[in-house]
Design a protein around this nucleic acid. Structure first.
Lengths: 334, 334
DNA sequence: CTGAAAGCGCTTACAG
DNA sequence: CTGAAAGCGCTTACAG
């Protein structure tokens, strides 16, 4: 493991000069620069990131916190964030929360000692609760930059890049209502989720706009996973409710709902239409292809990383950025 | 940002003592220990990971290299690896290769300066080619431990934990043959893939065992993605080939194939049965539910991490571990 | 343009 | 059981 002094010695210069060759090559005369590069190649020298980090007080590393990396939406998000981070010369730490608030809080506490410059929070679970807010503000106090990719965080100065989940669910619901479908069930991701709360609002708004009264609405809850969704939709059906459409908060739940339906002999979309509030890469390849509300994740990941890196650099960043969405109609609802 | 000296001053002890309280608390008398803990809490002190890493020469960080994190199998693998790493006190760096060999090589070169103790390689792309082997052996020379979760790497001393892909594809193919289905098409992930090469072998073995001659076999190639698979299966069908079964190297390709079939009015499994060589979390929720060959990913991730951490600690580890698999028969093939 | 020197914040023999 | 001292490998004013 060659050090900078080894290289300096081999090249007949001082360590300072080697460091300069690495960090501001133009500041060193060509002859020496070449000798240094030759020595670096010869010794297969790699700068020690630990020493560099200690000296500079930064890490060139970001952390991504997701609710569940095994779900396809989060996988796609991670991909785009990773690529964007890479393009900026940052490594990406992956942190899976498994939708657990305790994990989230524990992680926020441990992040300062993990050596990250910035953190991207992309979990649907509600962040505006005291223990999380406390942990967040401690993290910020430690000088770690934070951006949120799922919801707005009140008053802590954490920039957010979010889709308007109310509008997302409203559009999804309206799409079904326009076809004259009723009743329509909203399948939410869980009572602890900020996104579900908003999406539910959008569902309600669309229904009211269509002239439905509140007691005609039907909201059921899952936990973002297919299994629970299958069960709760199954229970609903077994209780004699017969929806004409389902708006699912995410795609695994849409699949769970679909299975509950088909197992009971119902057909999609003929008997029941389904829309997901979340688009995933394989959505078009499901059977039937799943209608969903899409955000351009490639662009989204890049923008999140841009904002975070600006925040790390101490620049002013927009407190709130609205990320556009649009409905993609596929076979599950037409 | 309090430092260890601040804490020492506040507690009226030396920095050495604070360090001991953190790293070997029993070595410090209780009274002082308590004072130190109080000072730590009061100052909200967090040890600097950079300083610690520099001093100890380790990073408490692993890297996971996957072919494509947006694909469901890799998402599930990442989840289990992340959790296992976390349980051992390690952070996990996520590196998406996007199935590009150039990215892989670039990454292997850059890993030493990213500050990782160990690397898990879990890409299907063939690692036994010179540029990759060269980059790998440089990485090992830099003192970074490596384990491979997809294939064996010849002679570099990299431990591997792999499923027997030949057997996986053989089992999948035999499952279809047993039902008297023929012809059966093998849909591979790409000529550059080590896993595909093995899987193809398994397909051929099963067919021969069933008495099929080599010129009856049919192998087509994709790139692990649904899009290309849809296209190549579509072309096959349009050329008049009418398979009774398809063995797909991974799940996205199985979905692509399924779409090509259904778009041409064919039914699964009545007209064509499908099996995937890779099980994914939502496999049971596809329509029809997808038969596939399953590996227990929860267990697998844990074992990979165990081996890697042992290797980092300089312990002897098994050069090759066979990970069991079993066929899960679902609606797509029965 | 270049080098000597200081210092980032820890840990760990070493001496007591 | 505890502290003073050295050193991990860099970077960066500072002086020349």
């Amino acid at each position: 493991m060659a050090t900078i002094s080894d290289v300096a010695r081999a090249a007949g210069v001082s360590p300072s000069t080697v460091s300069r060759v690495l960090n501001q090559p133009e500041a060193v005369v060509v002859a020496k620069r070449d000798r240094v590069f030759a020595a670096i190649a010869e010794l297969d020298y790699r700068p020690s990131s630990a020493a560099r980090n200690l000296r500079r007080g930064s890490f060139d590393t970001l952390a991504l916190l997701v609710g569940d990396i095994s779900q396809p939406f989060h996988g796609a998000l991670a991909k785009s964030v990773q690529r964007a981070a890479d393009e900026h010369g940052y490594s990406l730490l992956l942190c899976d929360l498994d939708h657990s608030r305790d994990r989230l809080i524990g992680l926020l506490h441990s992040l300062p000692k993990r050596g990250v410059d910035g953190v991207i929070i992309a979990t649907a679970d509600n962040l505006n609760v005291q223990p999380v807010r406390g942990a967040l503000s401690e993290l910020l106090d430690q000088g770690v930059a934070v951006v949120c990719g799922s919801q707005n965080i009140r008053s802590l100065g954490v920039p957010a890049l979010v889709t308007d989940r109310v509008a997302v669910a409203r559009d999804a619901t309206a799409h079904l209502l326009t076809q004259g479908l009723w009743p329509i069930v909203f399948l939410g991701g869980g009572p602890g989720s900020a996104l579900t709360r908003d999406a539910r609002k959008g569902y309600e708004q669309a229904c009211r706009t269509a002239g439905r009264s509140d007691d005609e609405l039907c909201v059921i809850n899952g936990d973002y996973r297919a299994e629970a969704a299958e069960q709760s939709v199954g229970t609903l059906l077994d209780n004699g409710v017969r929806p004409a459409g389902i708006v699912a908060d995410n795609t695994p739940m849409a699949l769970g709902a679909a299975r509950a339906l088909t197992e009971r002999g119902l057909t999609i979309p003929a008997d029941v239409a389904i829309v997901s509030c979340e688009d995933v890469p394989l959505g078009a390849y499901l059977q039937p292809p799943l209608s969903s509300v899409r955000t351009d994740l490639e662009d989204y990941g890049r923008r999140i990383v841009d904002v975070l890196i600006s925040a790390i650099a101490g620049q002013d960043v927009p407190a709130r950025t609205l990320v556009p969405h649009h409905l993609v109609v596929r076979g599950s609802s037409s």
